[in-house]
Amino acid sequence: MSSSDGHAHARHPYLAEHFETIEKQDHAVRLGMWLFLGTEVLLFAGLFLGYTVYRHFYHETFHEASRTLNLAMGATNTIVLITSSLSVALAYHAIKHGERKKCISLLVFTIVCACAFLVIKAFEYQHKFAEGALPGQFYHFKEVTGPGANLYFTIYFLSTGLHAFHVIVGMSVLIWVLRGVIKGKYGPDYYVPVELGGLYWHLVDLVWIFLFPLLYLI
């Protein structure tokens, strides 16, 4: 397929050489993204499995330890993430309909939400550090002393830490997408990067939807 006949109309500026049409490229790109998101689900599945096993072993302690987390901060963070999920979906909707300015402000709002999430999380961590609710051998929290208490906080820091790392990555991706939107690279005829950046952000929200009840409410 090295000949260029059949390409009477101009090639799409973002169409890579090895794809025939932009539709085929978009299809491949979307499939790749969903595959990646599938591996992300499996990555967190390992942590969720660890949580369920140890919760089964140390049921009472896990219940007690979950009550020492700050529910108000956790619930606020849930609302922040759900709202940022809405704004990123709206940003995608805006760029698809050629509303570039609206898309920019929605993306900025999403990034601000991501920062707010991290700041609230940092306050929570700081509080846990001060109390001595630390993972493994560093645990010296006075309120919960039953067997498995340090395991709860090991899982708490591992899962929320990995999630916070995903928030940082998602935020970076959205900043990169925002840069492209500001430069005018995306519009109604090409918006796949905005869509995929948004998909990643929704995954971050998805993980938190499960982490929040498991850690704060059980």
Binding site: H27, R30, L31, W34, L35, L37, G38, T39, V41, L42, A45, S85, L86, V88, A89, E195, G198, L199, H202, L203, D205, L206, I209, F210
Partner: peptide, 25 residues
């Protein structure tokens, strides 16, 4: 999670292959 996947992530409009790889996970 179902609401987020179906409507925010547009799984309700995604192609069969995309649905398959994500749900299989």
């Amino acid at each position: 999670a179902t609401l987020v996947v179906l409507f925010f992530m547009h799984m309700s409009e995604a192609s069969g292959a995309n649905r398959l790889v994500f749900l299989v996970s």
